[in-house]
């Protein structure tokens, strides 16, 4: 999942559309997401093209190493979902801090079922002190989550350099679980 600069005009369009797409650029905000079955370890990761909430482009041909955490941090989530999202984000940030220089990319996807408030997500990116972590959303219909077959949060995927899902963790992300695996993945 490679952060990439797009032409300014296209990036602006994407922001207005406020969607992320798979394999179709940023012109398909009205598309209904195609929900896959839950992505399993060993499966090929889907391609991702999106803008994070601060406007930086995220593009992926499915290859990693990348850590993708699907969380429910925003209004409308249960307090338990929000608490799990906060703890998971701390771990995701820790992985970015330690391993970004070795090629790891870290993405948090707001997996709200309904399109979240963009302002809330923008503020979240600042208030959670995300540095080197990209926050995706809001998404109409939760397209990224649908492409990964995510039906419950938190769930986190570690995608290897070959684009294959290396690990999948359900529940609050823990450093002790993900740390050694990420360390191995970036070797």
């Amino acid at each position: 999942m490679k952060p990439a600069k797009r032409p300014p005009r296209m990036r602006a369009v994407c922001l207005l559309a406020a969607v992320s797409l798979f394999g179709s650029g940023c012109s398909g905000g009205e598309e209904q997401p195609e929900r896959r079955s839950q992505l399993a370890v060993g499966a090929k990761a889907p391609e991702v093209q999106a803008d994070d909430v601060l406007g930086a482009a995220v593009e992926s041909d499915g290859r990693g190493p990348v850590l993708v955490a699907f969380l429910r941090p925003t209004t409308g989530a249960t307090s338990a979902q929000q608490a799990a999202a906060r703890s998971s984000a701390v771990v995701a940030q820790s992985m970015a801090t330690q391993y970004a220089a070795r090629g790891l990319r870290v993405v948090i996807v707001d997996a709200a079922g309904t399109e979240a408030d963009r302002d809330e997500l923008v503020n979240l990116a600042y208030d959670w002190h995300l540095d080197g972590v990209q926050l995706l959303g809001p998404e109409a219909g939760g397209k990224t989550a649908a492409s990964f077959g995510v039906s419950a949060t938190p769930v986190t995927y570690l995608i290897g350099p070959d684009g294959i899902v290396d690990q999948r963790w359900a529940g609050t992300l823990s450093a002790q679980a993900v740390g050694p695996a990420v360390q191995h993945a970036v070797k």
């Binding site: 406007g55 302002d119 600042y126 995300l130 540095d131």
Partner: peptide, 21 residues
């Protein structure tokens, strides 16, 4: 500048959103 300010989130957006926060 904040270390992670980037992308197209800029003052115009912030100002527009401030009003009804």
């Amino acid at each position: 500048a904040a270390a992670f300010i980037r992308g197209v989130l800029r003052a115009a957006t912030a100002a527009a959103l401030t009003a009804g926060a």
